[in-house]
Nucleic acid binder design. Sequence first.
DNA 1: TTGGCCTGTTGACACGTTTTAATACAGCCG
DNA 2: CGGCTGTATTAAAACGTGTCAACAGGCCAA
Lengths: 335, 335
Amino acid sequence: MSTLGTVGIKEVAQRAGVSPGTVSNVLNRPERVAVATRARVQQAIRELGFVRNGSAATLRAGQSRAIGLVVLDVGNPFFVEVARGVEDVVSDRDHAVILCNSGESPGREARNLRVLAEQRVRGVLITPADEDLSMLEGLRDRGVAVVLVDHPATGDLCSVSVDDVAGGDLAVTHLLDRGAERLAYVTGPLGIRQCVERRKGARRALRNAGLPARALEDVVVPEMNAGGGALAAEKLLAGGVPDAIFCANDLLALGVLRALAQAGVRVPDDVALIGYDDIEFSSAAAVPLSSIRQPTYQLGKIATELLLEECDDPSGHAHQQIMFQPELVVRESSR
Amino acid sequence: MSTLGTVGIKEVAQRAGVSPGTVSNVLNRPERVAVATRARVQQAIRELGFVRNGSAATLRAGQSRAIGLVVLDVGNPFFVEVARGVEDVVSDRDHAVILCNSGESPGREARNLRVLAEQRVRGVLITPADEDLSMLEGLRDRGVAVVLVDHPATGDLCSVSVDDVAGGDLAVTHLLDRGAERLAYVTGPLGIRQCVERRKGARRALRNAGLPARALEDVVVPEMNAGGGALAAEKLLAGGVPDAIFCANDLLALGVLRALAQAGVRVPDDVALIGYDDIEFSSAAAVPLSSIRQPTYQLGKIATELLLEECDDPSGHAHQQIMFQPELVVRESSR
DNA sequence: TTGGCCTGTTGACACGTTTTAATACAGCCG
DNA sequence: CGGCTGTATTAAAACGTGTCAACAGGCCAA
């Protein structure tokens, strides 16, 4: 039943009357061992409650059956959906996912990557916290496959992303169509690429409409969650509320929405509001939230397929940069 | 710079002019090695870009510096908040967390536990998917510390939980106070303990109010998310909408809320609604959601402290069962 | 000077598995 | 009967680190 200490491949071998090598074969290439022997070994495994020591296996094999996924914020449903796509692909190939949270901090990201490197993961899926990709290139040079998620690569890495400039354009063009003249852009730190790109798109929309760049005021907050949104709303209420607000993600928008409601500002009558990501909760918000939808699940799925492809054939692999187009979803908050 | 292949402790040792044992000491007990030597070794490590092979370290040490966290649903903000509590404690002690998702399925839970066992994690934090704890006791007998999260233990395991019976009572008592006479309980599979306990509390509240058990209709759906809530709402709309609805968690309640709104049923005028968990999105919902609040972050934090305590002193450790009390939060949906 | 102690360092082995080359054996054909 | 093929199994050599007993050398007290 439950032996204390450690029951290894040797004990199993002895019990089944075979050599350790055969037990290993049963575990890894069952087809190479005769049916009768195989059955005997499997029974011994069951009887002794043997579980293979993954560290030893990994050590010997030189690489593990795991991949790392480093996201900016596990609390953000966007990344949870990405993770779902990743896991669905990975578990089919019976690999494991080690999920890490960088919290948008390059320091924590670096720590996470070090752990993943120590674990000798086969590959890493990552949404980088800043533009410095040197550590990732270091990983790749060390033989760890890397795919950027929600971040376009420049050519020597694979990437799967969504056109954030187009998304920003889509959002602001919509707000302008609706008659807005004074706009605000609520965003996280401008070290985050998505924030910058979406702003770029927003400004492009402004230009196309013949409006000056100053028609769009930036409101930068340190964290891209509901708390950050509330903070941004405070700032806006203090400085005079604009016609329309574009938030760099839905969590910010939900925070803004709640804070505005508490202050008696009506959405969309007094101010139009649009978010980004189209997370599930947006449609159930106090005022259903307009948003920019991204193929989130697909992002995780495709990225993982690319990663595993690179793992399986590291030499004959051409890096690909895949970019999806986002989609405008109009709801009550900007009607 | 970036050597291909593998740079190990030996190369570092050679470069620094010391023995491999000394390098290992620098890594694990820096205080035992002279400052000058230590500096030389650390420089060699930097120059060669050495990263320690975690598998080898784990193999030799017999256990890793990681703990496993198995939750019912990573998509549920409740568990995300628990995970945050876990990670905050764990990263202070520079351990790592391996986050696994059972999706409420005992099968996936078993697979996850097997992977964790193979990885030789020091301990496991788990919200079990069913009442069969035999596999967990097996783990514990094998020397892996186990703490139950959001699930009370019977005595031979540690656990940190919240009084779900009290929570169910709180919710339904509130609905009854508000004048409800025909109630519905929207819940996930009754294999899940939380669902059963909360119903038990709900029925207790009914009894205390002198009402028959049939005043509370069970609506069971397969998944405890917004989709499940929508499904439940369909059933309710078909069978006649009650006065008040108690949902086993907030995701269900949000799903119910949205579906009712689409069908033209007003909350709280036509029907009162209350959820469970008090996730962040509940207060920002179309109709701000009443809910039962739990000390979610604390749950993760305390559970992890218990776990690490058990890891550090396995023999002189007395198992504890800690139970928190939940709290009623009244918002618009049941006013 | 000798003996003892403390601090730093070393060398060799062990951890549990995978893998490879070698071995045993049966069956088949010439 | 001998050589050959193919299958099933084995023995032994790694993989990269941690540990621990042993050892070197400097210092102080006797």
